[in-house]
Amino acid sequence: MSIEELFKAAEQLSAPKVTSDIVLKEQAEIMASLLTARLLKRDDLEELIGPGNEGVMENNHLNHFKYISTLADLYDPKSFVETVLWVVRTYIGRGFTPKYWKVMLPEAQSVILGHLAKEDSVQIQTIYTWLEKYIDDFVQISRDTTSFYERIGPLTRTGDND
């Protein structure tokens, strides 16, 4: 799958209409702590995130919930795809494996749904269902394409810093 196809797929995803975006924003830290606690209990954590990356993972979880609350307030398909791609590229660069998201996304969904009104849950679930469907494509595209910085950075295109 190409990034253009991902953009099109993201355009098919309806903007989540939730009334709880403020709740999500206010409780991002709590939800991140709960998610981190769940992941820290796993015996295979080092296999998922690489050695010594617990703090990096914790930071990612906080940003994840803050970003989900942003999506609930303002959904823009292009920046959604670019942001997820940026996240995948950044954390894989730090030793995270694709399997991490296979574990993290369902756990995050479980945590977040515990904090939402029932009518909002369906809206948020569509985001997670979409992410779980396309996460392998994000990983593949992050490997096969130049990064955002490489696309906009003229110095990068001129070669190594020698």
Binding site: S147, Y149, E150, G153, P154, L155, T156
Partner: peptide, 11 residues
């Protein structure tokens, strides 16, 4: 351009 490159190196 230097700061974009710094962003890339960090990423």
């Amino acid at each position: 351009p230097v700061m974009y490159e710094v962003g890339r190196l960090w990423q």
